[in-house]
Design a protein around this nucleic acid. Structure first.
Lengths: 117, 117
DNA sequence: ACTATACGTAGGGTTTTTCCTACGCGTTAA
DNA sequence: TTAACGCGTAGGAAAAACCCTACGTATAGT
């Protein structure tokens, strides 16, 4: 946990930040293109630059990007630590999608309490 | 992809569904307690039952739960396939948090274009 | 047939999200 | 110093999220 809020509120912010295709695309651009100033990112979107600035703010407050000032530019950089937290959160569910992919889950779930004959 | 919308819209729905602690707790209850009717889930929350029903609707539309009618009950079951998609989405970012945990990322990022001497 | 139970939906209020235009602030260039 | 550039913020409109209290529908029990 960083500074602000509870653990659940942090997860809220990270998932909410990811729940928007523009913001996911920003993360991809930073991942594939490295740290970039705002205008370079904005060029990829059909959206006014101030709106993208607000998306960057959401990503910043989720800890998914950081900014570094360079003259009059602000270089944004991917910060992947919250994504590692997402993967940790996913982990206890992993056996479920493996079961369901093999069709084993449905079988087990249809036998609620008693043993198979 | 299921039936409705684009791939990005699907990801929107999944991440948005996860961006709420009540809904994440529902998933945990289904994971740890197995398939359950609505009232059994509702007992864990300080919230009216109709509100929880709406949360279940959000989870259903994200494909994260399914319902199976049993008399006048509706048994909700965890559907983990969308979570597998989330893990797939995370995968290209994995090297970033590994780099950043070792402090290697910062070093590399400070050398923008030219080769190291 | 009547009542109770289990659940969803309708409608409404409040807050948040997401876009916009206008503007302010700091930095670089002329 | 004046102008242009890069970026954030303020304020506002439209839509969505999230909670509530009614209410409707279907099944189960008496």
């Amino acid at each position: 946990m960083t500074a602000t809020g509870t653990r659940a509120a942090e997860a809220d912010r990270v998932f909410a930040a990811l729940a928007n295709s523009t913001r996911r695309e920003v993360l991809r651009l930073l991942r594939d293109g490295g740290p970039q100033p705002v205008q370079a990112l904005a060029d990829h979107f059909d959206m006014r630059r101030p709106s993208l600035s607000e998306h960057l703010k959401v990503l910043r407050e989720a800890g998914l990007v950081s900014e570094q000032r360079n003259g009059r530019q602000r270089i944004y950089r991917l910060e992947a630590a919250p994504l590692a937290d997402v993967q940790d959160w996913l982990h206890p569910y992993e056996r479920f999608w493996r079961e369901q992919l093999t069709g084993l889950g449905e079988l087990l779930d249809r036998i609620p309490d008693d043993e198979p004959s």
